[in-house]
């Protein structure tokens, strides 16, 4: 294995090791909450149907007309499923900050050690970057496994004639949240992750600006975020600026957007590289 690659993998494995307990906790919360949802919602539904049938002396069909059939989509909409996802997203967002600040904060100044490693300092940047992405994909993968299990569990708990005919993928595709976070539509998945990638680059750059220039760095960071927002949204406002909504085709606007995001990522990498090599202060 090439030396620098080995060093990078070492560092990434090391960073992941530091994150793993946190990740296990998120996986645990996701699985437990999901399992409760998969069992609770179908049981409540069947109880309600049965109770209605007994109380009103009506047939199964009549009860279903009142309550409707259960679908996996109904389960997907509950907080038992959406809650852990929201938790995971916000936790990893916070972790994107924590992954850097923990090197400086508290009694330990591990930043000394990291910055004095005989490896390119951008390895530190990308090891943290990769770890965040590995965590995101691990959580998505866990969610997928959980959903497949949940779909089958629901089908086992509820009589098939009480279930609305809706395939697993139909339920997921119809849900705006899962439509965007799961790889159901390759281009959507790519776009979302592309935007995420740029966002993480900018976030890391802002953190490094703060670490390099302190309070002044916060102001520079805010300005940088505003500039990146302007650049990212520029293609969206371009038709307004040129006063013609049909001058550029949507495909051309997309290409411009991709270029803008690429420019933001590239600039963020270059700034981060400069800061890590020349300006960072322990």
């Amino acid at each position: 294995m090439k030396k620098t690659l080995k060093a990078f993998l070492n560092l990434t494995a090391f960073e992941l090791d530091r994150l793993s307990k946190f990740l296990y906790a998120l996986i645990g919360v996701t699985l437990v909450a999901n399992m409760i949802g998969y069992v609770l919602i179908p049981l409540r539904f069947t109880d309600r149907i049965n109770a209605y049938m007994v109380q009103n002396s009506v047939t199964e069909q009549q009860a279903l007309e009142v309550y409707g059939e259960l679908s996996f989509y109904d389960i997907l909409q509950t907080s038992w499923i959406l809650g852990p996802i929201a938790l995971g997203v916000s936790a990893l967002l916070l972790y994107a900050f924590f992954i850097w600040y923990r090197e400086w904060l508290g009694k330990n100044t591990f930043a000394y050690r990291l910055l004095m490693l005989p490896i390119p300092r951008m390895h530190i940047f990308y090891s943290k970057f990769v770890v965040i992405y590995v965590s995101i994909f691990t959580l998505i993968a866990i969610q997928i496994v959980s959903l497949i299990f949940g779909f089958n569990l629901m089908s086992a708990l509820v009589p098939s004639e009480w279930l609305r005919h809706m395939s697993f993928f139909s339920a997921l595709s119809m849900h705006p949240f899962f439509y965007y976070i799961l790889p159901l539509e390759p281009w959507i998945f790519l776009a979302i992750n592309g935007i995420g990638l740029v966002f993480l680059h900018v976030t890391f750059t802002v953190i490094l600006l703060e670490r390099s220039f302190s309070v002044k760095g916060i102001l520079i960071g805010i300005t940088y975020v505003l500039i990146t927002l302007l650049i990212a949204l520029f293609p969206a406002f371009l038709p307004e600026l040129i006063g013609n909504h049909y001058y550029l085709y949507n495909s051309e606007l997309l290409i411009l957007t991709v270029l803008s995001l690429g420019l933001i990522s590239f600039t963020s990498i270059m700034i981060s590289r400069f800061l890590l090599n020349k300006k960072i202060t322990v």
């Binding site: 993998l9 992941l16 090791d17 793993s20 990740l23 590995v134 994909f137 691990t138 993968a141 997928i144």
Partner: peptide, 15 residues
């Protein structure tokens, strides 16, 4: 590396 490779492999396989 086992933890890193396991997570990465698991994610890729599932996705």
């Amino acid at each position: 590396y086992s933890k890193l490779f396991s997570f990465a492999f698991f994610s890729i396989v599932i996705l």
